[in-house]
Design a protein around this nucleic acid. Structure first.
Lengths: 354, 354
DNA sequence: CTTAGCACTCATGCGGCGAGAGTGCTAAAG
DNA sequence: CTTTAGCACTCTCGCCGCATGAGTGCTAAG
């Protein structure tokens, strides 16, 4: 990139332009900036600088006689320099910790509460992606017979998440067989992730082609069905979508709002988008077009992953118009992600005390 | 009500007014109606009739020189007379049956698919309220120990629904105790609804105040926690909310849209509203202000209950602007509710074949 | 009772106009 | 060479007035 490294004063102007645009929402002009600017530059000077910044793609003029508005590149610059993370007040931290702590012991409730917190603290759309079941470690498996060939599989993960699905079996199983199989699978695979379990299972099925033990055989058959890859877990906790209609960016452009809402409604597609965007770990900020997804034009994401026992479980974050209070929200997302990780390890923790 | 029983011709005019307003969305005038009207009345005559209808509260003029628009009372009349239920085409019926059949065996998936069907066939917001867990019959209960005093309770209902919650216990329980208790509770309460189970449990606890049997005692304690009344099940399947933004009623009035969306987002409140509105059983149509809930101003509901083994499980339905194609949608909702009931009894059926 | 005719009302869309904001350029000042 | 003041220019936005057209209510005739 031909970034001729902006000189400090120019950087200052850019920063302030973005900052005041975020604060007020209308294009900011040289005069406005001159008033705010401590260095006491005249509007004319600032105009020249802004003109340069426009040439370099940091700013953009909606029309000739309007002020300037940041481009995505401008926002990116702003975020990368202002990201000092103004931090949260003590009261805010306390509130976050408190809300998470008291939201009961089950992960689902916790994630929902997290989503709620994020939305209410930022007034944006919040999202929390649930742990990927395939990567969860198994704590318990159970079978409930529905009809001779239809069985309800109930999986409980280390983090007390419960997944259930109905599987169609190739042959009849008696209630007794189911129970034995469950016992066997519990004994063998507790502590493994589902995908690990699946692999081991496949190996064994191949090895012991001539299965003498009837119990083992049915257990393996059932296990295969239970750990199947298509065990979907498209759970995303969303909150605050309705808030977007209050944002001028959307209330003046219903088309856009409609499109966004449609995307948010398709949970599966949304999850794909989020996963694609948030491939790296740690705190991520994606500004407008940086995500190569047309659905997210004009929208920024701030996300962070949460973890348990050094394993990444999922992401929490917010999304909203590119014009948002990055400095503040980055702190919020970051802190909430950390708190969530802590809370999970505190409640779901003590992994082997059965 | 002082309804001076409209004479047939007047009824005709009213019906047609509502009908064409539903079709086109703009206030309908006497001239338009004269053209459509088979009886060949002149605009002037129609004007007189419409004027009468306005006096009686069936129609309403947005402003002096506009056509007429139905009031809620007008819609109500329309619905009550046109409700012959034009019925669905063979292809439509087939599609409904097919979609439901192939949507897998678990109730949750089924309800979601139902919601999807409703939304896509009507282009409105669809809702499906899940079975009230308290009224579900128990098929299986399981305990998973998380820590000495925290236990995950997994309940499976006759309809293969799974509910889980974490309970905090007053004293420690060993893994063995949990297992015994589960066995006991399964033996005792299978086939009862949760609320029945709770009552019986309370009775026993009172009767056998001096509990000699340690197993029974811990089982009852655990059962009490498991069947507690606050076992929430605020599951509503919503779909198609984003479609509302395409409706002129909302895209021209974002305030309203915002309010509606906020209501839809608060699942708990929404569930309360729905329950309050849909107290009766069978097919229900609620038009705008008839629901005494300010959140639903300008919105109509068409809902029907679905059932399993003569027990009402929940409701399915749609909601959208009062201006909607009642005749068509009533058929859709009605037929889908029936199909859903059928599908549930077919898949979850055969209640005691464990 | 129905209908034709007519005056009246009112929302809507369009063109023009002035105000205001902000720019770019030029020339002078530091 | 950089900064600044001055000035002409551009463009949006809101407002006004006007013409238009749809639709009504009323009246009088069929």
């Amino acid at each position: 990139m031909n970034r001729p490294d902006l000189d400090p004063r120019t950087q200052d102007i850019l920063r302030q332009t973005v900052h005041t645009f975020i604060a007020f929402g209308d294009p900011v002009g040289s005069r406005t900036l001159a008033k705010l600017n401590a260095q006491g530059l005249s509007p004319a000077t600032i105009r020249n600088i802004m003109s340069d910044l426009e040439e370099q793609g940091y700013l953009f003029q909606p029309h000739t006689s309007a002020g300037r508005v940041p481009t995505d590149k401008g926002y990116r610059f702003y975020v990368s320099t202002v990201m000092d993370g103004s931090g949260l007040s003590f009261a805010e931290r306390q509130m976050i910790a408190g809300s998470l702590k008291q939201s009961g012991g089950d992960v689902e409730g916790l994630l929902q509460e997290t989503s709620h917190l994020l939305a209410s603290m930022t007034d944006m759309v919040s999202f929390v992606t649930g742990p990927n079941i395939q990567q969860s470690t198994l704590k318990r498996i159970d079978f409930v017979k529905l009809s001779p060939r239809r069985v309800l599989v109930v999986l409980v993960s280390e983090t007390a998440q419960v997944v259930n699905r109905v599987v169609e079996l190739p042959e009849d199983f008696s209630g007794d067989e189911l129970e034995r199989s469950a016992r066997y699978l519990n004994a063998e695979f507790q502590g493994f992730t589902l995908s690990e379990a699946r692999e081991i299972l496949l190996l064994r099925l191949r090895e012991e082609r001539a299965l003498y033990d009837r119990v083992v055989k049915s257990a393996l058959t059932l296990g295969q069905a239970a750990f199947a890859e298509n065990t979907t877990s498209s759970d995303v906790y969303l909150e605050g979508t309705s808030r977007m209609l209050k944002k001028p960016e959307f209330s003046s452009n219903i088309q856009r709002a409609q499109q966004l809402f449609a995307t948010l409604e398709e949970k599966n597609r949304l999850l794909n988008i989020l996963n694609a965007c948030l491939e790296g770990s740690g705190l991520q900020i994606i500004i407008g077009s940086e995500a190569r997804v047309p659905d997210l034009e004009g929208i920024s994401l701030i996300a962070a992953s949460y973890r348990f026992m050094d394993r990444e479980l999922g992401s929490v974050g917010i999304m909203g118009p590119t014009r948002m209070e990055y400095a503040k929200f980055i702190s919020v997302v970051d802190y909430i992600a950390r708190s969530l990780s802590d809370t999970i390890s505190q409640t779901a923790g003590r992994p082997l005390d059965v």
